[in-house]
Design a protein around this nucleic acid. Sequence first.
RNA 1: GCCCUCGUAGCUCAACGGAUAGAGCACCAGCCUUCUAAGCUGGUCAUAGAGGUUCAAUUCCUCUCGAGGGCACCA
Length: 550
Amino acid sequence: MTLKGLIARQLTKDILALWPDAREALEQGSFVVDISYPPDSKFGHYTTNIALRLSAVAKMAPQETAKKIADRFSLPAVQKTEVAGPGFVNFFLKESWLSRQPEKIIKEKKAFGKSVLGKGQRVDVEFISANPTGPLTLGNGRGAFMGDTLANVLSAAGYVVKRDYYVNDMGNQVNILAESVLRRYWISQGIRMEYPAYCYQGEYIDDIAKSLYLPNYNLGKTSLSDIRDKIKGRILKRMLGGIQRFVTKRLGIKFDMWFSERSLYVSGKMDKMLDTLRSLDLIFEKEDAIWFRTTQFGDDKDRVLIRANSEPTYFLPDIAYHHDKFTRRKFNRVINFLGADHAGYAPRLQAAMKALGHGGKLDIIVFQLVKLISGGKEVRMSKRKGMFVTFEELIDDVGPDAARYFFLMHAPNTHMDFDLDLAKKKTQDNPVYYVQYAHARICSILRNAKGLPVLQKATVESSVHPSQFNLMVKLAQWPEIVEDIAQTYAMHQLPTYAYELATLFHEFYTHVRVIDQGAVAKMPFELIQAAKIVLANVLTMMGISAPEKM
RNA sequence: GCCCUCGUAGCUCAACGGAUAGAGCACCAGCCUUCUAAGCUGGUCAUAGAGGUUCAAUUCCUCUCGAGGGCACCA
């Protein structure tokens, strides 16, 4: 358990002992024992506002309440408690506890930061899931990095995590893709024919057309749709293969499952789902279509499952897919990343899961799309019109590390403005280099220190520079950050933490020499090794490299 | 028209309902005989507007204004 967790547990015990009446309020959740980091180091290392919330139950002034709590509290790692301001209880750690942390971190290495919070529960993280009808967009990229990173965090927090990409290999958009390629190919062969507006306009259509052996123009007996149906499998494979290669090789994201929508048709799982919903009396017929009563579960209108032309909508197989996650694949929790352009889909999927008894187990994270700025103006993007900057182009321009950091920096709800010119020009100013530089600097010191005698003097003395302490405190927080993010999904805390850690190291570096007169002192030497490990752990969790040299 | 998200410094973004609203970029002024100056130190500048709830509001509620997304038998 983290120190933060220990403090919270001890505090809860103390409160219940002091005010037995508080139990009910605590269980109802009308207040929680919450420990956070104070805004200033003069307020200690941990703080809680619990006394302020509790004073009504305790029937005494907040400051008095705080004093009672502070007086009773005791934990081996905690030196003292203080009451401050309107009634905060602040906790100060023992120097001896802090100074033992570097050694502990060096021993644990990559394991430092891992926890058993998840107790081995199974979590599915589905992200990207973009239609294989065109290149990935910047919006897809944001979801890609957030999804992959959250999966990393959950995995470190003790969950068994699987990454899913749902491949929309059925439906009309695949037909349009195949038709687009065919028409482009024929036109390039000198056949005079139209290129309708509903076809995809991007250059990648030509690229596919060039790279495949396609049938020559001969529409005498067979119709275009027949020819199209014969070749669409190959085109889909080519398109999906490109995405898979890019995602795996270039982005370094390893999906455990590329789940085919089509497979749900073939295996009969989709039909079975319809039967299940029928037996639950959740469907009805209207105007020759089959509808799901999603309004009974919080959706604002009922939804079509089977269209009047007897073809299923996207919704039905998706319900089957998600149901399968909970039943056959035994996930305790499913997380789904959705771009804001699909946010309206969330309520109906939630409704379906509720109807099937999986209520509360599906978390949908909606992230805002990326607004692209170029030449000082917004660039409107459209896949259909072929006007867009692809994710791959961005990665080529700024590199995967800078791109990852940039997308992870912002909370999902942020409407990000992405200035392409700035991103290309200023990659050197990207904070990711600041963090990586800290890591490289430590590596450099360690190289220089190789073979030098280690002096056993200098543990922690109050005369040492405060940055040494600050660094130790920050390092010790790492496991708590991991657990927090596993619960709040606030991935943008990772770059923040990494940056703060790097700042403290750079500060430490300018004030404290590790190598001095041909020898190294034990404490700073251990401290930078620990800092290196934690920096590498944070960067790795974000999927960013930790360079030894820069 | 209805629904979702957002509005914080010149720009891009932080801040479980908490203490003096923080960073980066940009701009100004300093710091390299010593482990990597992609660094460090200091400085200027902000909660869209109006009400309300609260001991405490950038955060919650209502309205106004502005931005993005959505309101299909598309996905």
